[in-house]
């Protein structure tokens, strides 16, 4: 039997992430009740039991069902905003590293600027302008943490630029864009995928933080962050309100980080377990 490549972190992380994605996709079938409409004050704040596995909140809604639907928000925001970040960061980093010169100075300056401003504060400002909502969350988080992708892409391009095959491509008459996309990008994709996976975890945490501050998903719709925000006052008296959304965030982000680490082990050229 072939040995599992990437070690246990890849498989545990991948499993957690796959589980979260399945839950988000099949939410209507997995959830026990409607996450919003099934409010019933007669059932308010019931501790976890067989009927309500994670208990109910102050409006009598099933926490389990709300967490299941909340996965949709968290994963959508995490994946969509990280795709934005990766596209911006890779485009800027690739062109800055390849062309160098004044463009590199501009991009590096911009990257340092982004690193100097805490991205959550920047996202908060964008949310304040756009107003709460799923789309604003994606935009706010998708525009504010591309600096890591950008730096990694730029550094990788710089190290590849002097390789013979890049020079050969120039000599053969490849255009700059063609070199960047057919010669450089496929060879730097590994680290970028790792960064993107780790970034998704970060985006999910930021979504939770923004929702916690009341700038994310508008109540009564569930997101893990807004559920935590609502539970804040009752953390001593009704702990299950905060424990279960917290665990959902914890395991999803843990899964993404483990997946990122596992992917790094396979994709990193320095890694000894690389195929070849």
């Amino acid at each position: 039997m072939p040995k599992l490549k990437g070690g246990s972190s890849l498989w545990i992380g991948g499993g957690l992430v796959a589980f979260a994605i399945l839950v988000a996709v099949f939410a209507p079938w997995i959830a026990l009740t409607d996450p919003v409409m099934a409010a019933n004050l007669m059932n308010a704040e019931i501790p976890p039991d067989w009927e309500y596995p994670f208990g109910t909140d102050a409006q009598g809604r099933d926490i389990y069902s709300r967490i299941v639907y909340g996965a949709r928000v968290s994963l959508t925001v995490g994946i969509a905003s990280q795709i934005c970040n990766s596209l911006i960061g890779v485009t800027l980093g690739l062109t800055a590293g390849y062309w160098g010169g004044w463009w590199d100075d501009v991009v590096s300056g911009l990257t340092n600027l982004m690193l100097a401003i805490p991205s959550l504060v920047f996202a908060l400002a964008i949310m304040a302008i756009l107003g709460p909502g799923l789309f604003s969350l994606v935009v706010a988080l998708g525009l504010t943490s591309w600096s890591f992708s950008c730096r990694i892409a730029r550094a990788q391009v710089l190290s590849l630029k002097s390789q013979g095959y890049i020079q050969a491509a120039r000599i053969l008459g490849y255009s700059d864009l063609r070199i960047m996309f057919t010669q450089v990008l496929p060879n730097i994709l590994g680290p970028l995928i790792v960064i993107a996976t780790l970034g998704m975890g970060g985006a999910i945490l930021s979504e939770a933080a923004l929702s916690f501050l009341g700038l994310g998903i508008r109540p009564p719709f569930p997101s893990w962050g807004s559920m935590l925000a609502e539970a804040r006052d009752q953390i001593r008296t009704v702990p299950w309100l905060s424990v279960f959304p917290g665990l959902a965030i914890f395991f999803t982000v843990l899964g993404l980080n483990l997946l990122g680490d596992g992917l790094r082990d396979i994709l990193d050229p320095q890694s000894t377990t690389r195929r070849g």
Binding site: Q163, Q167, I171
Partner: peptide, 14 residues
Amino acid sequence: QMVFQDPYASLNPR
């Protein structure tokens, strides 16, 4: 055209 020194670095591995 040019033939390069290092045949390991001069071909795109992908």
